[in-house]
Nucleic acid binder design. Structure first.
Lengths: 372, 372
DNA sequence: CTGAAAGCGCTTACAG
DNA sequence: CTGAAAGCGCTTACAG
């Protein structure tokens, strides 16, 4: 249709009557040409519809101008939000963002990391979601150009960007304790993950501060996904002496717990309170509105890309660890443990005029932050 | 650290004592070498840690092995789900997926489409979200290699992949009518969009079939986003004679409506019923669980990539239009218009034992499909 | 069957 | 300041 099959820099040079060197330099702004020459080049370029071939440019410059983002699944709300922010930030610096779904399988992560070696990407933001068996650390230390986000790969020579996991968990559990809960269950991520370790540590610190004895039977581990969390929740509630509140170490786990609760006819927060971690989009519109620890995905994305760009440019000394601040967003999934003792009707509607419960959820959205 | 700075195919050839031609051919499986030679090459390659430079390969082959996905924001649940499926399908065919957030700004879309011209991507899945002023169609017809998804760009020579918008809207509205609603409001997307036109057409068909006179004052247009939808919902409910039910033409609009309802103390579905379109993730865990028309994002992603790959390979005749089937997922956001007349307590809990409402929502998830 | 050589379309020392 | 030429690291007609 359009006759401009393969207009190259040589065509422009010929049409403008100058050398390809000058065309390249001028178009890349590395030289300031006398007015007439400059406009001859520009006119020739636009008349021919010249578009510099990015692949060729990359080959000569030795950079792909592309970053990679590895998550287990971009469809997960937290990862989608991080991806969005990362893309914006990458674009701001002239970089593309390639996205990879690892399905949380080490082989896939390793394969994607290989894209650094064959120069398809200049660097990678890696959000892994399983403990490393040693292959990831080895690969990362070979490839370089990796920023670890959200979860750690111990031993890797790489900048790190994590949430304030312990502080966040502590705030969440302290909130439960303040409402009167003393028997608190935890649905935690897989053993060996940084998020699991740190959030559990925060949980235990909060108990300790309140002089509540820890109880291992109330701690259940499972993968960061809804299905497993449903099972974990059911297991906790089936205990001879079930918890009056549950802390889920991620909103996907909270969703699983909420589904399990529905199936079992257990009402949150009347029968059991729930507090979580992440604050995925629309957590405020869930039933009930979820009280959870917010970690800003936008900040994650922005800082992650900034760290990666620093690393690629050789501006950073390898193994810094940055933390993203968190805040507790109080909504409606936590009640006092006595709530369940009331009449078996909806605690909000019965005692308040219609709509008051909605207004309450709205106005009660209090935020407690680790940062000022 | 690792001393393998720039191992090229020449190094391998030298080490193996063969020509680069043979190395290239063997490694790409375009030739079957005698056993000893083959293993000499493989050993040299692995000993040196050889990784073919993908950029160089792309320059010679003239393909970037990369596809682009343009959405207004990858963080929107529907788009994230489509992105996830697209990436999987692209990877299955050896393609990378680049992702672009257009923020629904034409200039950004045009810039990203330019990546086809400078060969950064071989093709693009374009999900635009605004009526074209003529620039998009012009650009697309210049670049080629575009598959239109979700929304149309009239006049573009491109394969198209849309949901069965009219059929879906009709099912949604018929469902409301069957529950006894006759005064039904609509929050529609921007005028001039395919989804708006078709969903509105389905809405009107459903009214007509029930012999309900259409009423333009009940149709409000706004951008596909929460904020505007909140305003639109408030406007509808502020009418002298407000609707008893509202059909939102997208789940983001439904979320906006739900937020507005909360703020105003309006309860869904007791005071007003709500039915929507999309079925974003966790719509079943919203408060109330959202009755909505599901369009499968996985199918969208898979078919979109397949169409694009066909187009790139020259296997397709340009302007096919495919439709993705939809189904109505009945949950808990629709009630009879009489519900509001009952006592001002939660209609589910009062009349049923605790948990029954949850069980009801669960078991009542009926699916009515346009496909068999 | 094998390999020397040209070519993909740029960028950039280097020489004039 | 300008341009001819080499080079980025592959692939692939082409000749032997």
């Amino acid at each position: 249709m359009s006759g401009r099959l393969k207009v190259t820099i040589r065509d422009v040079a010929r049409a403008a009557g100058v050398s390809v060197t000058s065309v390249s330099r001028h178009l890349n702004g590395r030289i300031s040409l006398p007015g007439p020459t400059a406009s001859k080049i520009e006119q020739a370029a636009s008349r021919l519809g010249y578009q510099p071939n990015a692949i060729a440019r990359r080959l000569t410059r030795g950079r792909s101008e592309t970053l990679g983002l590895i998550t287990s699944d971009i469809a997960y709300p937290l990862f989608a939000a991080i991806a969005s922010a990362s893309e914006q930030e990458a674009a701001r610096h002239g970089y593309n963002l390639l996205m990879f779904n690892s399905r949380n399988v080490a082989e896939n992560e390793l394969a994607f990391l290989g894209r650094i070696e064959d120069r398809q990407v200049d660097g990678v933001l890696l959000l892994t979601n399983h403990p490393d068996d040693g292959r990831l650390v080895k690969k990362i230390n070979r490839t370089g150009g990796v920023v670890l986000m959200d979860e750690d790969v111990p031993g890797a020579r790489a900048p790190r960007l994590f949430a304030e996991n312990a502080a966040g968990a502590m705030m969440a559990v302290r909130h439960l304790i303040e409402q009167g809960h003393r028997r608190i269950g935890v649905i935690a991520g897989p053993r060996g993950l940084l998020s699991t370790t740190e959030r559990l540590a925060g949980f235990r610190q909060a108990l300790e501060a309140a002089e509540i004895a820890p109880n291992d039977e109330l701690v259940v581990h499972c993968d960061y996904d809804e299905g497993p969390a449903s099972g974990a929740f059911a297991a906790l509630l089936a205990l001879p002496e079930p918890p009056t509140a549950v802390f889920t170490c991620g909103d996907m786990l909270a969703l699983g717990a909420m589904r399990a609760a529905r199936r079992a006819g257990i009402r949150i927060p009347r029968d059991v309170s729930l507090v979580s971690f992440d604050d995925i989009g629309h957590a405020d519109l869930l039933s009930p509105a979820l009280t959870t620890v917010r970690q800003s995905p936008a900040e994650f994305g922005r800082r992650g890309v900034a760290l990666l760009l620093d690393l690629i440019a050789g501006r950073k000394t390898d193994t810094v660890t940055e933390r993203i601040g968190v805040e507790l967003v109080v909504r409606a999934s936590v009640a006092s443990p006595l709530a369940g003792m009331r009449a078996p009707s909806d605690r909000n509607t019965v005692s308040m005029p219609p709509g008051a419960d909605a207004a309450r959820e709205e106005s009660n959205e209090i935020r407690l932050s680790t940062r000022t």
